[in-house]
Amino acid sequence: MKKLKENIINFLDNHMPIVFPAPAMITLFIVVIFPIIYNIYMSFNKWKIGLGSPKFIGLQNYIEAFSDPRFWNGLKVMFFFSSLSLSLEITLGLLIAVYFNKEFKGSNFVQTIYIFPFAATPVAIALIWRIMLNPQIGVLDYFLNLVGLPGSLWISDARTVIISLVLVDVWKWTPMIVLIILAGLKSLPKDPYEAAVIDGANAFHIFSYITVPLIQPVLITALTLRSLDNLKEFDIIYTITQGGPGIASETLYLYSYKTAFSFFNAGYGSTLIIIVFLLVLLFNVAMNKIRYRTEGP
């Protein structure tokens, strides 16, 4: 019995790099990798859920996508939504972080408040925004009127719907980016700042010639992390507009969901999902390339 225990421990010790990760990796393979393979397979098939069995049709789904105006619309909406929200979140995040980067009474309080939007359930928050963005009874229209601006149709108008959704996304995620950049700023070396002050540099020069270049790797990492979720934003858009009015705010991701689960078109839906996946992958590879160039390998 004692021998057996010793044997097990010895085996564990000698094969730790395999034995330790194995359970997690096998689980991940089953829950993650298998569905990806399934989707790739299904993207070459024609299949309506509940009707007969999948039929192999080669690349036809992919060809269909490129001539589908709703596909191009989804791509365009995704591009506008993501580029607007990501650039606003990073820019505002940096500016606010620089503002709060000092010792002050209440910094603890600010941190607490800033963790809330990140932690709050997206669907619940999106429903509250849906009420606030209502053109008839919404409080945001009321505020606009209060400062003498005309009301907006917000999510009811195809021209303003994406900007309204960006507003919600920026509200939810900028605070977290502030906290990440703030931690990055706190870990920067002090010497360049002291040298710059001695040389008589003003605040703007210090910001653009010292802070921005030094903090750049953190910005790129934050952007990469954020893009993982942002390119696949679902809860907020699905809850607030469901892609409407019409298809004015229907991202490619939302369209892929609807194709599979509202139109029950599993084959074509899988094709759209694979394309979204490839876009996210491509963006990440590009961001990694940029990061290596700024940091060195």
Binding site: V32, Y38, Y253, A260, V276, V280
Partner: peptide, 11 residues
């Protein structure tokens, strides 16, 4: 972490 959640739903 990169894989879109929708891709898990169908399988």
């Amino acid at each position: 972490r990169m894989t879109p959640f929708v891709s898990y739903l169908l399988p």
